[in-house]
Write a protein that binds this DNA or RNA. Sequence first.
DNA 1: AGTGCGATTGACT
DNA 2: GTCAATCGCACTA
Length: 205
Amino acid sequence: MAHNKPEWGVRRLRRTDLPIDTAEMARYLIGKTLVHDLAVGRVSGRIVETEAYVVGDAAGHAFRGLTRRNRSLFLDRGRAYVHFAYGMHMMLNVSSEIRGVGAGVLLRALEPLDGISFMEHWRDHASLLDLARGPGRLAQAMGIDVRCDGLDLCAPGPLWLGASTRPAGEIGSSVRIGVSREARRLLRFYDRNNPYVSGPRSLSA
DNA sequence: AGTGCGATTGACT
DNA sequence: GTCAATCGCACTA
């Protein structure tokens, strides 16, 4: 069960820790930690929900080939791809294949760990449960914007991935949220017993 | 050049 | 439950 215990000694994930397959990466990232070290302090959270946008996926932003906007998806796995959506929201993805192949994992929800007071401020004092529940909220709570696009999450730097802070729970899967193309594919993954998940928690495991 | 729409969210009936 | 906000990009002409 969630307890929001801060964790300052988390080990950074190395690129070699990351699976090279996008769907495997989406499942692997459940339970891992996302950390952003800013001048004001650290914000971090436990990743509880992801979606895979795999190679050849018509719903993926890389589907039509390399452009200025989606270029980070074509970097080696473990890079940040930050997308500006609906004219107002940021969304954070992790690139997930070898260099030159476009695919990524969307981070959809976090259980807040460190820097909760910063998150509350940036999220206009939303409730703890809603601070990072949803991809746009997650980016806002973590202080992530387009300047983070292309950052290497596996290299020394402000934005990085850390190991799990406690044993992973049961992982469920479902169709992706808000996606019309390739809508039947079960490429959303979530921690079944975590209340910080954004959408349905009832579909197949 | 114009149009439609999206990997969303928050406010409102 | 419904709906507007708000803008970059793909697509049509």
